[in-house]
Amino acid sequence: MILKNLSKSYDGKFVVTDVNLSLPENKVISFIGPNGAGKSTVLNMISRLHKKDSGQIIFKGKELENWDNNELAKNLAILTQHNNIQSKITIKELVSFGRFPYCQGRLKDEDEQKVIQALEYMELLDIQHKYLDELSGGQRQRALIAMTIAQDTDYILLDEPTNNLDIYHSSRLMKLIRSLCDKLNKTVIMVLHELNYASFYSDIICVFKQGRLEKVGNPTEIIQHDFLKEVYQVDFNISHIDGKPLCIHF
């Protein structure tokens, strides 16, 4: 996926300015940066939820706008934080929607299998018949992630996936994301707030600040005292565990 001169403004104010980025396949890529840095907006433009003002997004050799909607849904999945689902719908039914691009609502055996698999991944099998409005925030989030997994796309985009999840489920999710990439050859692009998750689980980190792409690199290149201090305006204490940088900022 290649981004060229990507820009977006709201009411004359630029929220994303001139982003140039080339994202390799089969990697876990994290977008980090302070609030209002434009990382979610970039993710939303990549996933066609927001229209871009100018620039190009080239996905699998073809410009994003020229993709057929349904075809794109088989190649790229996104999960955002805006999920206000009011209908009476069970976890399993929600996850089954992940198969919609393939079967338009009429599930075949193969689809059914993928749904069960996704439920298993997210440890939702025992509560699969519960209604969504009976769930806690974390369970809901897991159900939505399971839907994205059932969609079985090469690219998975996640906007703050660890929101609402406790430590057990967020670290499990990060491991799952790693295995999606390593075992199933998926490309995962996500917006993260926890620097250490980004550092430990991603191959590439893109740092945004005030709508601009500041730096792209592997965790060791990014998690550096002076650079992070400049981006976040906070003092960091950086140490290493298993050869990976760990930063503490209390």
Partner: peptide, 19 residues
């Protein structure tokens, strides 16, 4: 026929390939 998917909200519906 697309209403079922649209109950999931704008973002999820677009994600699943609905215009």
């Amino acid at each position: 026929a697309k209403l079922d998917v649209m109950t999931l909200g704008r973002h999820n519906a677009i994600n699943l390939g609905i215009d």
